[in-house]
């Protein structure tokens, strides 16, 4: 419940709290309403987060507790054996290295290219701008799964199947449209006057972009970097088709091939899944406060 004074102040400042936006004061009166909403919120959280908890819990359980008809809710006798088994499997470290190289290459290259293109679209009216925008939107419409065949044949023709470079090139193209489109919104939000001031002070046009615009769109760069990271780290089908030899594969391909002839070994599989998910979550948590606003600030701008 928000006090009338707060609400009034909120309006004056042009800021209405989240509660007021939801029509909270009207729909729920008093404590009960808030408690109901909180209970519902926690229930949603439990439903969404349980699978992740279950993965981690399973990963720390000894085998006999995993294969038990009555599930053990907590990994009470606690073991690291599953992790040791997972890491000891062939090609784990190779594939970790490959994933890191692919993600690093994709994120750095795509950020650079997307920033340049976003500046062009946001700051210049030029012949071909509309065509470029159509290209951006158009290629986003194409489902990657439909392109596997020609991509495979094309890269096969130039000897780039089973190489990390081929995969990076594909991921780069896949993440670029979204990145350009998002960064464009951020660049458009930086007042042109700032660049002009820098140019009057003696910067060239390019220097003005690099020294003024680039630092100011930090949140946009972070949001798009996270996007690129997740896409590249999580992608499966392209890596699965393009990378034939096990020492060249990525972590997701390694993970999907975990099942043995005797069916999956759930303990090591859940440990491996935890290890695969960990870097993304870590990357996310470090940068997440930039994110919620970041993604849509570009999108809402249109």
């Amino acid at each position: 419940m928000i006090a009338p004074g707060t609400a009034h102040q909120g309006v004056r400042l042009g800021r209405v709290s989240a509660e007021a936006r939801a029509g909270y004061r009207i729909s729920f009166r008093g404590r009960t309403g808030r408690l109901l909403a909180d209970a519902a919120g926690l229930a949603v959280f439990a439903l969404m987060a349980f699978p992740i908890y279950w993965m981690i819990a399973t990963a720390f359980k000894p085998g006999r507790d995993i294969l038990s008809l009555t599930p053990k809710w907590f990994p009470a006798p606690f073991t690291l054996q599953n992790f040791e088994d997972a890491i000891a499997r062939p090609f784990f470290l190779d594939d970790v290295k490959n994933s890191v190289l692919i993600v690093g290459g994709t994120v750095l290259l795509s950020l650079a290219l997307a920033f340049l293109a976003a500046v062009a679209v946001a700051r210049f009216g030029f012949r071909g701008r509309t065509a470029f925008i159509i290209l951006i939107i158009g290629v986003q419409m194409v489902p990657l799964n439909a392109l596997i065949i020609p991509l495979y044949l094309m890269l096969d023709g130039v000897g780039q199947t089973d190489t990390l470079a081929g995969v990076i090139a594909v991921y780069l193209a896949v993440v670029l449209p979204f990145m350009i489109w998002t960064l464009r919104g951020f660049v458009a939000n930086v007042p042109v006057e700032l660049e002009e001031a820098a140019m009057i002070d003696g910067c060239t046009r390019v220097e003005a972009f690099m020294r003024v615009v680039f630092p100011l769109i930090g949140p946009g760069l972070v949001a798009t970097a996270i996007f690129g990271f997740i896409q590249a780290w999580n992608e499966y089908i392209i890596a699965y088709v393009l990378l034939a030899s096990p020492e060249n594969q990525t972590l997701t391909v390694w993970l999907a091939s975990f099942t043995t002839n005797h069916g999956p070994e759930w303990g090591p599989l859940m440990a491996a899944a935890t290890l695969t998910g960990l870097p993304v979550v870590a990357f996310f948590l470090v940068l997440q406060r930039w994110l919620a606003g970041g993604l849509t600030a570009g999108a809402v701008k249109g």
């Binding site: 997740i230 780290w233 899944a273």
Partner: peptide, 19 residues
């Protein structure tokens, strides 16, 4: 919680649900 789920690689998610 949402961010955790979002960050979960799809192959990991599939393995979890399979289990």
């Amino acid at each position: 919680g949402l961010i955790f789920v979002w960050a979960t690689p799809v192959i990991v998610a599939i393995d979890i649900w399979q289990w």
